[in-house]
Structure formats: structure tokens, C-alpha cells
């Protein structure tokens, strides 16, 4: 993350950046405030990213630990959330990669049983079996939305989560994910097209998601 004078000026408008500067000066109270303020958001994003609640909490703690360890080198160059999710993105991708490596080993060791398929395969199977349109209950909808999210690549998923749940701009997402804003734009478009495809059964004309499924 390149820090320029103008980026610093912009960053200093963010109150959380000021808290982080206090942390840099050794304030434990400020650090506690930051943890309390961001823990739920961070755990939620990581949970959706790695698909495992316990691992998400472990990762979130690792992220906060990295924030703390980086405090003395901290230079405000972006909003605090952008910086935090930059660290989260790196930590999550590392975790997912090492999990994928373990899975490869496991798959290699497993004898040739029935192919379980990727989340996308499962999702597509689910959607085809659910045609034509029918009433879905909320739990099923939630499960399928989650599967749809899992069907995205890790980078698409992260971009979607930051855009949807953190309300981050393409520029901020680009900073957090070490991409250009143009790449983010393209990533999000592909992600949303994929989601549209696998969630097609829920997109019948006249359905207004989030209202007609309410219990």
C-alpha cells in the first residue's frame, strides 16, 4: 500500500485511523476499541470466506495480532478498514491455500469413490432439480446462497464480501486485495454473473428477494 501525502490526508479523516495512531503510541485502550469495533465484521467476512466459523475466529485473532505487531510501522495511507481487510485478505488466502494443499493430499490418498463435486457443481445440480420455480423456505434459501458464494473463486468471494458487507469502494477493495480498480470491477462483474447463474431459480420475475421468503 503506497502512502502519499494526499492519501494520508484522506486517511486522517477516518476516526479509526486516529485510534490506530494511538495504538502506535502504545495505547492498549485504543487497541481494545478497535478490536471491539471490528471483530464482528471481520469474523463475518472471514467466516464467509473460509466457510468455517472456528477457523474464521482464529484467523480474525491472527489478523488483530498482525495489526498489533505492525503498529510501530503503521503509516496512515488508507482508511483503517481498508488496511485491516488487506491483512485479512492475506491471512485468509494463506489459510485457504494451505487448506487446499492438505485437501489435495487427502484427495490423492482417497480411493476413487463418488465424485462429490465443487460447490458450483452442487449448486447447479441443486438449481436444476429445483426447476421450475417453487416456494423455497428461508433455511433452504440461505443454504443455497451460501453454496452460491462458495462456488466463487476466493478472490471473487473476497471482492463480493468487501463490496457487499463492508460497502467498500472499488478503489478500497483494490487496495485491500492488491489489485487495480479496473481488475476489481472485472472481478465483481464476473462474480455477480456467476451468482446470477447459480441463483437463477430464485430470480423469477415478480420475486423480490428478501421479502417473499420471510417467515
Amino acid at each position: 500500500m503506497v502512502v502519499t501525502e494526499s492519501s494520508t490526508r484522506r486517511a486522517l479523516r477516518d476516526p479509526d485511523v486516529h485510534l490506530m495512531l494511538e495504538v502506535r503510541e502504545g495505547s492498549a485502550v485504543a487497541f481494545e476499541q478497535l478490536v471491539a469495533r471490528y471483530q464482528d465484521r471481520l469474523v463475518a467476512v472471514l467466516d464467509h470466506l473460509v466457510g468455517d466459523r472456528d477457523q474464521a475466529e482464529d484467523l480474525a485473532q491472527e489478523v488483530f495480532l498482525r495489526v498489533y505487531r505492525s503498529r510501530q510501522r503503521y503509516q496512515p495511507g488508507a482508511k483503517f478498514a481498508t488496511w485491516l481487510f488487506t491483512i485479512a485478505n492475506n491471512a485468509a488466502l494463506n489459510a485457504l491455500r494451505s487448506r487446499a494443499r492438505r485437501r489435495e493430499v487427502n484427495l490423492a490418498a482417497r480411493d476413487s469413490g463418488a465424485f462429490r463435486g465443487s460447490p458450483l457443481d452442487r449448486m447447479l445440480q441443486a438449481s436444476s432439480s429445483q426447476m421450475p420455480a417453487r416456494q423455497f423456505d428461508k433455511a433452504e434459501l440461505r443454504a443455497n446462497v451460501r453454496l452460491a458464494l462458495e462456488s466463487l473463486s476466493e478472490r471473487q468471494r473476497m471482492a463480493v464480501l468487501l463490496c457487499k458487507f463492508e460497502g467498500m469502494s472499488y478503489t478500497d477493495i483494490a487496495q485491500a486485495m492488491d489489485l487495480t480498480p479496473k481488475a476489481v470491477k472485472s472481478l465483481l462483474a464476473r462474480a455477480r454473473a456467476n451468482l446470477r447463474e447459480v441463483l437463477a431459480p430464485y430470480l423469477e420475475e415478480g420475486h423480490r428477494p428478501g421479502t417473499e421468503y420471510d417467515e
Partner: peptide, 10 residues
């Protein structure tokens, strides 16, 4: 539809 995703607190 992504609003359906549950986001539990830590």
C-alpha cells in the same frame, strides 16, 4: 439475495 447470508457476531 446475499442479504440472506447470516452474519453472527464473534
Amino acid at each position: 439475495l446475499l442479504d440472506q447470508l447470516e452474519t453472527d457476531a464473534a
